[in-house]
């Protein structure tokens, strides 16, 4: 609580002290996703989907330390929400096991450090690369499923909480003003391992309850490739 208060006070003071108008960036756009999940059985299950992405970045435009200017670096917090379909997945908890096709809803948060390279092609396009940790939650709504243990119905959902890392590479327009809404296109590769699987009761859509959950000690992981395209909003 105290750490949080100190953080808040620092941010508030920084608003009056540091020149930040050109360093804080907000971007948004669309995302197309393809990935694979290694679940509780040996087969690899593939999914694809689409959704939205948004990211907030802080570019170190005015930071110079011992003669080195850090304006090529940017710290970014990115969020992707997408909806898709997975052809076959098996999920297993202590009292429930179910397999079948599923509609998947995923939210991925990644925090990464980006490095911008020199511009290409008439100094318009600037490539960049980024790396950092990520966390995601995949919520599965089973369709055409088979219950092999316990009880499971259409109001139940399975949720996986995963954590891992994200690698980003893309290009962005190098325009003199961000008010010109520079466009970006990027590929991100996210590799995450499941930490927790939960069985949810979604019979009341306003209040989704967790019935049972289990910390994963088996190797359940996912590879996600996302193509994001969007622009700087401000």
């Amino acid at each position: 609580m105290i750490k949080y208060l100190i953080f808040t006070i620092l941010i508030t003071f920084s608003l009056t002290v540091h020149p930040y108008e050109k360093t804080v960036l907000l971007r948004g756009g669309a995302t197309a996703t393809f990935g694979g999940v290694k679940s509780f059985d040996d087969s690899d299950n593939y999914f694809w989907g689409g959704g939205i992405n948004a990211n907030a970045g802080y570019r170190f435009s005015n930071l110079t330390i011992k003669g080195y200017n850090f304006n090529r670096f940017e710290i970014n917090a990115s969020g992707n929400s997408y909806w898709g379909k997975i052809n076959h997945i098996k999920s297993e908890l202590e009292h429930v096991a179910v397999d079948g096709t599923a509609a998947v809803r995923t939210f991925v948060i990644a925090v990464y450090l980006k490095y911008h390279f020199d511009t290409l092609y008439k100094k318009i396009w600037q490539p960049y690369v980024g790396l950092g940790p990520s966390w995601s939650q995949h919520t599965l709504k089973m369709k055409d499923y088979q219950v092999t243990k316990g009880s499971f119905n259409g109001n139940n959902r399975i949720a996986y909480l995963t954590e891992g890392a994200t690698l980003v590479f893309g290009i962005e327009e190098n325009l003199p003003y961000k008010e010109m809404h520079p466009v970006f296109m990027e590929f991100t590769y996210t590799f995450t391992a499941a930490q927790k699987v939960s069985l949810l009761d979604a019979s009341n859509h306003k209040e989704i309850e967790s019935i049972e959950y289990e910390n994963i000690d088996k190797h359940v992981y996912s590879h996600i490739i996302m193509f994001n395209m969007g622009m700087t909003i401000f």
Partner: peptide, 14 residues
């Protein structure tokens, strides 16, 4: 909630 901490300011500002 982590999604709310992100979605409220970022998607909200957009």
């Amino acid at each position: 909630s982590a999604p709310d901490l992100f979605n409220t300011p970022v998607l909200g500002s957009i």
